[in-house]
Amino acid sequence: MKEDIPVVDKTSSLAAIKVAKFDVNKRYTKPHKHNKYLEIVFFTGGEGHHFLDLKNYKIDPPVLFFIHKNQVHHWEINTAPRGYVIIIKESYLETTKDKSINTRLLQLNGINELRIPSEKAGQLENLFRALCHEFEGSHPKTAIFEGIFNVILMSLTDYANRLNGNPQNTGLLFLNMISADLKVNVRHYAETLNMTPQNLNNLCKKLFNQTASEVIARHIIKEVKYLLVYTDLAVADIACKLSFQDTSNFIRYFKRHTGLTPFKYRKTDPEH
Results as ranks from 00 to 15, higher is better:
D98Q: 05
Q210W: 08
L124V: 07
T261K: 09
A180R: 13
L108A: 07
L163Q: 08
K206C: 01
T211D: 11
V229K: 15
P6V: 02
F208P: 00
I178Y: 11
F51R: 05
Q198F: 05
A234Q: 15
K222T: 09
K99Y: 05
T11F: 08
Y84I: 00
G83S: 06
E39S: 14
P167H: 10
I88D: 11
T261A: 08
K97V: 05
R129W: 06
V235W: 10
V7D: 14
E94G: 02
D9R: 12
P31R: 03
Y189G: 03
S155I: 00
Q107C: 11
H68N: 15
I17R: 14
L127V: 03
T231F: 04
N169C: 03
F208K: 03
L163D: 02
K99H: 09
N185Q: 14
I40M: 15
Y84M: 01
G171F: 08
R187A: 09
L153P: 01
T29M: 03
M195R: 13
T29R: 05
T211A: 07
Y189C: 02
N199D: 11
P81Y: 12
V151L: 14
V85C: 07
Y84G: 04
L64G: 09
K18D: 09
F208R: 03
S13Y: 11
E47F: 05
G83T: 06
K30H: 09
T29D: 06
A20Y: 01
Y226A: 05
H34P: 01
N185I: 02
L207K: 10
V41F: 02
E47T: 07
L124M: 14
V8M: 09
P31T: 02
A143P: 00
H257P: 00
Q168T: 02
V63P: 03
